[in-house]
């Protein structure tokens, strides 16, 4: 086989695999849209489930998931970004940092149900938050912490050293350098980490199972100490238990569609944010 044929053969193999991946993704989305679009209506989005969850809408679950995404990000984002700044910009490469890195990676590998159990033990019982948005958000926050830390570290690493040297050579302190030069440059990539985290959090079921999720709760939360319904758990419930699974099947697809749509919308918003900051960095 000459160079040209092998070149074009390789190209076609890559292309076919690329198309397969894209195809699987589109198939899943298409399947959910096809089966779920029928039940989507204003009423479906704005009312609570009725008739043993075989009719009505999913509004409490939408609100619940939104609360959990927001709550977990408020907790995990500042904490993760700051610890990444510490390990990447300040701590050098000593034993402590290596230890933190190893532990972060281990944390990322722990099955999510374990986080659920841990959250129940610590937040729900020991700290006495009960089944609540607070307990669920903290549990989800710990779950995505490694993701936030790692993406932030990568974002900081991608800022060339020459910008740090340039700033330090002007008599700027390390904190000024980090705040005024490094962080603005890393920000678009940090936002990417935020996008990934949001996607992860909104889809997780196991960590909220024992910490916040309600089986059926047709009202909205009043405070962070209330329980809520959440989309992934609601999906699980109506697909496996309930009065009449066959009857609630369309609602399950509708729920899945809404979940995908929420993640998609948040991704689009975050991408716009990223673009905005990317532009600002250039001319700022």
């Amino acid at each position: 086989m000459n160079r040209k044929t092998s070149q074009s053969l390789a190209f076609w193999i890559f292309r076919v695999f690329g198309i397969i991946v894209l195809g699987i993704l589109l198939w899943i989305i298409g399947f959910v849209v096809y089966n779920g679009i029928g039940v989507i209506s204003w009423e479906f989005l704005t009312t609570a489930p009725t008739d043993g969850m075989t009719a009505g809408g999913i509004m409490p679950a939408i609100v619940g998931t939104m609360c959990l995404v927001l709550g977990s990000m408020i907790f995990a984002f500042p904490l993760g970004v700051m610890s990444a700044i510490y390990t990447q910009e300040y701590a050098g490469n000593g034993f402590v940092v290596k230890f933190i890195r190893v532990m972060t990676n281990n944390l990322a590998g722990i099955p999510s149900i374990v986080f659920g159990l841990f959250g129940m033990a610590l937040f729900v019982n020991t700290l006495g938050f009960g089944d609540s948005i607070l307990a669920g958000s903290l549990t989800l926050g710990i779950l995505v912490l490694p993701l936030v830390i790692r993406t932030t570290e990568e974002a900081l690493k991608s800022v060339p050293q020459s910008f740090r040297s340039g700033s330090l050579a002007l008599g700027a302190t390390k904190l000024q350098t980090t705040r005024k030069v490094v962080l603005p440059m890393a920000f678009p990539n940090i936002i990417t980490g935020l996008i990934l985290s949001i996607g992860r959090v909104s889809g997780e079921t196991a960590p909220i199972l024992f910490t916040v999720a309600a089986y059926f709760l047709p009202k909205l939360p009043n405070s962070i100490f209330d329980q809520v319904m959440a989309l992934p758990y609601h999906l699980y419930v109506i697909a496996t238990t309930g009065k009449d699974i066959e009857a609630s099947r369309p609602i399950a697809y509708g729920t899945a569609l809404v979940l995908i749509a929420i993640v998609l919308i948040m991704n689009i918003l975050a991408t716009m944010l990223r673009r905005h900051f990317g532009k600002k960095v250039k001319t700022g």
Binding site: G171, A172, K180, K282, G284
Partner: peptide
């Protein structure tokens, strides 16, 4: 290695951080 800032802000940077 100018900073990703405006021309003005690049020169002003040293003054501002001080």
């Amino acid at each position: 290695n100018p900073f990703p800032k405006s021309i003005f802000e690049n020169v002003a940077y040293g003054l501002r951080v001080n």
